[in-house]
Every structure is written in structure tokens, then in C-alpha cells.
Design a protein around this nucleic acid. Structure first.
Lengths: 192, 192
DNA sequence: GTCTATACAAAGATAGAC
DNA sequence: GTCTATCTTTGTATAGAC
């Protein structure tokens, strides 16, 4: 049944984002969905395969959104950047939810290789997208002139992911907003 | 025996930094140290208590180093910042080692409260130390004038922790150096 | 202080009935 | 497609001999 499979993916993703892949079990998912453990295994034969499907789905929705944002002629580079911040803002508004791939990055050594590949691709595609937006915004004169978009895109990406990581421990939900403010200042006033 | 307890702490910390607290077991430590599981429990009755002692020790050595750095009259604010980057540089040079508390922050929801308290204090003390260095360096004219040291200290701290997190997934060890370069540029040229 | 032996719980996974 | 029942492994932790 497709609806059940979708529920399993939804609940599984939620649990990874709040507790982590290692700490999440088939039993947790089963209880939440309202079925038994073996029913999950019927849809996803191993935990690793379930993990891979969850990440692929997550990557897919992000990829579609990022493409839409960068191809929208009505959006300035500032708009594009704001759109990119949006999911981080959502995660930051919750006490313990983080980016799916940020959560998985924290337990890379414990993940099966099939999942590590997916996480790596997520990271690389996001950094590349950011780099393109920076390059474009700088070229159009929307952002301050940027010496190295590659370098700056990494700092931005790392600080966003880092904010979610640190937020979980300090429970200070304002950290992300402060990082975004710092990034904004940076793009307005400096020649990096 | 004190030497055994120290070995347990060393190996336990190493395993948390490379694999994570949940993924690490008494068995892993025992094998590495060369003793049996119950011998560990004789020194540290529960996994939570072992975790707390490891974090306290880590916090302690960092606290001593940070105090020494900021009180050294021979060190400029740039020197202090460079010294602060040093352990991150070391972690970044390894394929999968991260800051102990960065690793633990990734699994906060799965940690016992006694450990969460320790992690939170680590994060807060580091951000505060950075803020003081920024304030001092800005006041002395060593750094560019900084509008909000609190805001900037958070971005720097989050981007450093984020670099280690992301490095693990991309296996691109140069990420941290690029972030440090961006921070340096920022403090030299901009009024944040 | 370290060991053997064991208790107990929970994990991922399989077999087979319905 | 979902279930009950079970296997196997691994985890934390305890009891008690040496």
C-alpha cells in the first residue's frame, strides 16, 4: 500500500531529524504509524534502504525548489537567498529539529556507504547552488563584490548548518537569526 | 587503578569524537584498552557517568587554555584568535574526528540530562570567550570595528563547528581553512 | 581491580500463517 | 499487506569468584 509507505517515510524522516538515524528504530516508526515492525520491513527490507529512500526524497524536493528559485526571473539574488534561508528558519524555530542531512552528517561514520553517498551529494549540491547565487548577485551588483564565491558559499553553508547543530545544545533559538544577520551585513558592506 | 581509568577516558573520548556517544559501547572501549567490559563498569558505573567525566575533563583543559591565551600580554587579539583556531585545524586534518561537544550536540536528544548540561556549558563558555576577544580586538583597533561582537562571535563559532560537521560528509578537509580565511577577511576589512 | 557468567532489554531481521 | 512468533546479535548492567 503506497499510503503506508509514505507514512513510514514521513515518520522515519521526522525521527532522524529529531533523534538521529542510529537512535531511531523500526519499533519507533511502527508505534507512531500504528503498525507492527515486520510490516515496515515488508516495504523497506533493511534500515539502510529505508534511509536511502528518505534522503533521496528529501534531496529531490530541495533540488526542485532550488531550481525553481534560481530560474524565477522575478526573484532578485536577495530574494533567492531569503528563500534559501526559509527552511533553516523553520528548523531553528523548533527545539530539536535540524536539516535531515545535517543530522546524518553528525553520524556519518556509523552510516552505511549507500547513505553516505546521498548525504555527500546533498552537501555538494547546496554549496554549489549557493556559490552560483553569490556569483550572480555579485555580478549583477546586488551583493557587494565578492572575492571568492566558493569560499564565501562554504562559510555561509557551514554557519547555517552549524547554527542548527549548536542551537540544539544551547536551546537558544535566536542563533540562526543572528547568523543570517551577519551574512546579510557581510553581503551589503564588504568586499570579501 | 588510576592509569586504567585514564586510558578508559582517553579511548572513550576518541570514540565519541569519531563515532558518537550512542554508537560507542563499553565493548568497544574494553577491546581497545585491553580489558573486559565489567572492568570499565567498575571505574564508571554507567555510560552516562563516563560521558559526564569525559566532557568535564575536556571542558577543563579547554578552559585552562582559553584563560591562558586571553591573559597572555604578549598575545595580540589576532594571536588569540589563531590559537583558538588551532584545535579546529587539528580536527579538520583528520577524516572523521570532530570537537567532542560538537559530536555530542548532534545527538543531544538522545543524551541523558547530566551530559546535556555539560555540553551546553561548553558551547556557552566558548561563545562568550570569542565575544570577549572580538570586543577587545575591536576596542584596541586590531580588528575592524565590530557592530555586534555577540552576533559575530556566534557566526564564527557556528561556522567553525559547522565546518567540522560538513567536512565529515564531504571529506573535503580544506573547508575549515576556507572558513577561517573568510573570518579573517571579515575582521580585516569590514565594519560588521 | 579484574575476571567469568549471566540477567535483561532492545535492536534488526526472517518464516510463515492469514 | 499485515500479522504472530521467533532468531540472532548486541547493548547496559549485576553477581560473585579470584
Amino acid at each position: 500500500m503506497n499510503a503506508t509507505a509514505d507514512r513510514i517515510l514521513d515518520v522515519g524522516q521526522e525521527l532522524i531529524q529529531t533523534r538521529g538515524f542510529s537512535a531511531m528504530s523500526f519499533q519507533d516508526i511502527a508505534s507512531e504509524v500504528g503498525i507492527k515492525k515486520p510490516s515496515i520491513i515488508h516495504h523497506f527490507p533493511t534500515k539502510a534502504e529505508l534511509g536511502v529512500v528518505i534522503i533521496r526524497r528529501y534531496r529531490g524536493t530541495f533540488a526542485a525548489q532550488l531550481q525553481e528559485i534560481s530560474e524565477d526571473p522575478a526573484k532578485s539574488s536577495w530574494d533567492a537567498l531569503e528563500s534559501y534561508f526559509s527552511p533553516y528558519r523553520f528548523f531553528a524555530s523548533t527545539p530539536d529539529k535540524v536539516c535531515l542531512c545535517g543530522a546524518l552528517a553528525g553520524e556519518m561514520p556509523a552510516l552505511p556507504e549507500t547513505m553516505r553517498v546521498e548525504v555527500r551529494q546533498f552537501m555538494e549540491s547546496h554549496q554549489q547552488w549557493l556559490e552560483e547565487i553569490l556569483l550572480r548577485g555579485s555580478g549583477r551588483g546586488e551583493f557587494s563584490s565578492i572575492d571568492s564565491p566558493e569560499l564565501l558559499s562554504r562559510m555561509i553553508f557551514n554557519s547555517l548548518q552549524g547554527s542548527l547543530l549548536v542551537k540544539r545544545s544551547t536551546e537558544d533559538l535566536s542563533q540562526l537569526e543572528e547568523v543570517i544577520a551577519a551574512i546579510t551585513n557581510l553581503l551589503q558592506t564588504t568586499q570579501d
